[in-house]
Amino acid sequence: METITPAGQLFQYLITGITVGSIYAMVAVGFNIIYNVTEIINFAQGEFVMLGGLVMVSLHVGMGLPLIAAFPATMIIVTLVGMLLDRLAISPIRRPTVLSLIIATIAASILLKGTAMFIWGKDPYDLPAFSGRNPITFLGAVIQPQYFWVIGFLIITVIVLTLFFEKTILGKAMSACADNPDAASLVGINVKQMILLSFALSAAIGAVAGIVVTPISLMEYDRGAMLAVKGFGAAVLGGLGSFPGAVIGGLILGAIESLGAGLISSGYKDAFALIVLMFVLFYKPSGIFGDIEVSKIKRF
């Protein structure tokens, strides 16, 4: 039988933690995009991840589309769902308050979950790994090739988003809505359209997260809520609204869960992450990268 050294074990905990953390980070980034433009927390964010996984299964496994075609097609379908969510649930609200909008997203998440249950049933679905299932042994740890895809897509997402928000007019317009919607509309930015765009973007990122995680964890209709909770934790840990914060928050959360489960006790895995989250919020209520001055002027 193969044996494993303590150092190898530690490395295995870290690499697994970082992979799981990458998924949390992607969910957290999705939360942040919508939060930055609308100041609401979109509770249907986890449902985008679930839809990404399940739609991909239908297109790739069910209809036999090749990976390279099914991937963008899934992103487009989930993006459309995100845009519909904004047009049907968020934008028609007559006197929008942060609370009423958040409640609308909760309703949307229940609706999406129920619809998914009708379409796909309650069974979990599998997706073939993108580049086979032969694990790679590295420094005593075993790494599934899919781990690289997860981490890789997180890096790509972050780079593309950073470029979008800092280099394009559209991205800058969205940031402007986040800073001050009234001033933004005075200078000619269509705030409603920016909100639509923010829902589209977060849905697309959610879809990516769902597609890359399904080969590792399978996907079923009710997995969204748990991912949303973890992603929200990551976003708060890193500082709501901050993209580097979301990534660091997600990775820290994943690593703590993994190390805590491996070195101390797997039964309290979720508790370790929450304890760290509480400590961070106790000493720095705005999160690691959050700015307390900025958070004071936010409505939520």
Binding site: I4, Q9, Q12, Y13, T16, G17, T19, V20, I23, A141, V142, V213, I216, S217, S258, A261, G262, S266, K269
Partner: peptide
């Protein structure tokens, strides 16, 4: 949970 690698590694 998405992954049980940690528990199995232990």
């Amino acid at each position: 949970d998405t992954d049980m690698t940690v528990q199995l590694t232990k």
